[in-house]
Design a protein around this nucleic acid. Structure first.
Lengths: 231, 231
DNA sequence: CAAAAAAGTTGATATTTGTCACCTTTAAAA
DNA sequence: TTTTAAAGGTGACAAATATCAACTTTTTTG
């Protein structure tokens, strides 16, 4: 892997993210990279499937990834992740199977690190391990926010939440070309795709958003926040 | 803190739990303990409230704790935790406020560690930091399981899930004196207390459980699992 | 380009679940 | 113990949401 890759770890798009790779010195970083592969996925492809024995942990360099959990009752979309986030960090723990599936919503470029070597690096560098702990803590915070939204709000509030989240966290702008089908949007908000469609129409009618096919533009951010608040 | 406390960290009741304190040597452990306080809470008391600036991270030595998240739409019960689990690990990360509230469902004894010293210990001992990373990973797994249950199943399935979870993870036996009100049980499963009551009655009628006031006994574990599966 | 498949859309209807009002039992306090 | 408050419980009803069956539009593919 070439040197310039170091640059892509500076999360200019995720300033909130803990700069975990900075805790490695040059030598440690290069060794870790030598046990890594850069892999590119096309839109629609799956990065990995739940239940598959895991040999790598991934770091997203670019693109948007959808995380879904499957079970006897079908699919639930846990979250969306974009560049400078890790995927499947928990496979570093005892369990060696991917705990969820990951799909590329855009062209996605990831760095895939060998689990064994990555764990080893953690055991040798406390700052690195602590940094990953922080990443995990942030992920958990995100998940529990979504948990709250999905469990306590009804459809309009849930949809408002996910739109705000997508605009702020993923695209970082109020207008964006949505890479998600209405079905996906429904899964993310825990509702049927028909309901998702109706809610979006309601929001358009109320002047909160503007829709043109897959392009969604948030017009009234404050109004959406209000909707989120009242549930 | 006296020496014998070391013993209580051997999680005879949670063999699945990563023995994270074993990664500290005698000296490190004693220093950490010297920055800790043992605190006892009575049933019904709150250990800490969401939003409060946090100065400690807690480890449950005994008792059962209910974790709740509050927001504009009221309360959601995130999870139940018992002995040998950490509370509020994520406050070690940048954010210094408790991200949720914790209540004692029984008499609860915790060890409260000073955040600054705990973080420092993590930065000096990679095995300890890695261990805490594993704990975090397990917590996340638990949370995402609950996420799936609450988002994809309907009432009977959700109640079956929580009963199985309480029996297996908290009480470790099929019959137990439930410390939760019907209201709490409803919050945990995302339903009104009246619905919780009705579901429990249904389960009793169908011979899955036996109820006598707060005492719930699981008669047909396989039947409950079946309910959980069909949602 | 034409044909087929997938995604989006709509209205009608059924199901699930919450709310309300009220009653009963249990636990706590005076 | 008596009184009061809290939790448990029930039925009727209302609200939220899913499902189904069309139909239209967009996208993909031969």
């Amino acid at each position: 892997m070439e040197k310039e890759t170091t640059e892509s770890f500076c999360c200019e798009h995720s300033p909130e993210h803990y700069p975990v790779f900075k805790t490695l010195n040059k030598d440690e970083f290069e060794k870790l990279e030598s046990h890594a592969r850069i892999i590119t996925f096309n839109k629609g492809e799956n990065l990995f499937k739940q239940g598959m024995p895991a040999s790598v942990v991934m770091y997203i360099r670019s693109g948007i990834v959808k995380i879904t959990k499957e079970g006897t009752q079908g699919v639930v979309n846990l979250n969306l992740l974009n560049s400078c986030n890790f995927l499947a960090l928990s496979v570093l723990s005892l369990k060696k199977e991917f705990p969820y599936s990951a799909y590329a919503l855009t062209k996605v470029e990831v760095v895939a690190y060998d689990i064994a070597f990555f764990s080893q690096t953690m055991m040798l560098n406390a700052a690195f391990a602590s940094g990953l702990f922080h990443v995990m803590a942030q992920n958990q915070m995100m998940l529990s926010e979504r948990f709250y939204s999905l469990c306590s709000k009804q459809m309009h509030g849930r949809m408002a939440d996910i739109l705000i989240c997508i605009a702020k966290r993923i695209y970082k702008k109020p207008s964006f070309e949505l890479q998600l089908s209405r079905q996906d949007l429904g899964d993310l908000t825990g509702m049927a795709k028909e309901s998702a469609i109706r809610i979006l129409k309601d929001m358009e009618r109320d002047g909160l958003i503007r829709i043109k096919a897959k392009n969604i533009q948030i017009i009234d951010f404050e109004g959406l926040s209000q909707l989120s608040r009242i549930g």
